[in-house]
């Protein structure tokens, strides 16, 4: 069968796989965003103990492969605690923790890139630290972080393919299952690759637009 024929024949399965990939990505990134913000804030705290917590988390995430993290969460933790974890939940936990670690570093870098004078100016007006952070520092930090944030989104989307190994039926796993029936590895992997490529290109285009919109005042004149 030719590639177009294969696409037509497997369209609904491929689309379901892609939908699962996107769903995993979005849910994980939302959780990872919260984790990243939380641990990013901890890592710029004045308190050493809070910084240490963030450091340990980030080091563990960066110091171990995603695949090992997935196995640890899907097989290791349930074995130790005597619980059952379904693959999707384990996958979301893994991706969230993983991306959260990298996002924490992105948040830290973004916050630290903002001139110290901004915090001082806000505090000198009588604002508490929390308000100065949320209203003055973070809005500026997020702007400088935008390229790195988008990059992490794309990485996380691609990392979902690793979760095929614990049996989640996302796009890569769907491709493997189809190939197991029709043995057309070249054609099928081409289709799968193109599907990843298209969705990531769309994301890149959207992000470029967001980036342009975010530069101060310029686009509004």
């Amino acid at each position: 069968m030719s590639i177009p024929e294969l696409v037509v024949q497997n369209w609904s399965r491929l689309l379901a796989g892609l939908a699962m990939t996107v769903e995993l990505t979005i849910i994980s990134l939302i959780i990872a965003g919260m984790l990243g913000l939380l641990f990013g804030l901890l890592s710029v705290s004045k308190k050493k103990s809070l910084r240490a917590i963030a450091l340990v988390y980030v080091d563990i995430v960066r110091g171990t492969p995603l695949l090992v993290q997935a196995f640890f969460i899907y097989f290791g933790i349930p074995a130790a605690l005597g619980i059952r974890l379904d693959a999707n939940t384990a996958g979301i936990i893994t991706l969230s923790l993983n991306a959260g670690g990298y996002l924490a570093e992105i948040f830290r870098g973004g916050i630290e890139s903002i001139n110290k004078g901004q915090m001082e100016a806000a505090r000198s007006l009588g604002l508490p630290y929390s308000l100065a952070m949320t209203k003055v520092i973070l809005p500026q930090a997020v702007r400088t972080m935008t390229p790195a944030l988008i990059n992490q989104c794309i990485i996380t989307l691609k990392d979902t393919s690793i979760l095929s190994i614990i049996g989640i039926q996302e796009l890569t796993q769907t491709g493997r299952l189809i190939i197991a029936n029709n043995y057309q590895a070249f054609e099928m992997w081409t289709i799968v690759a193109v599907m990843y490529f298209i969705i990531i290109m769309i994301l890149t285009k959207i992000s470029k637009r967001i980036e342009r919109k975010m530069s101060y005042g310029k686009s509004e004149n």
């Binding site: 004078g117 505090r123 000198s124 500026q140 101060y216």
Partner: peptide, 29 residues
């Protein structure tokens, strides 16, 4: 924080908030 509300400060490097308009900078606090 309360005491600082009564102590205005002007910095060498201005430290205006770049993501706010001039008016927003002033009414912000």
């Amino acid at each position: 924080n309360k005491y600082r509300q009564n102590i205005g400060m002007v910095f060498q490097q201005f430290n205006l908030f770049p993501h706010m308009t001039v008016l927003e900078n002033i009414s912000f606090a």
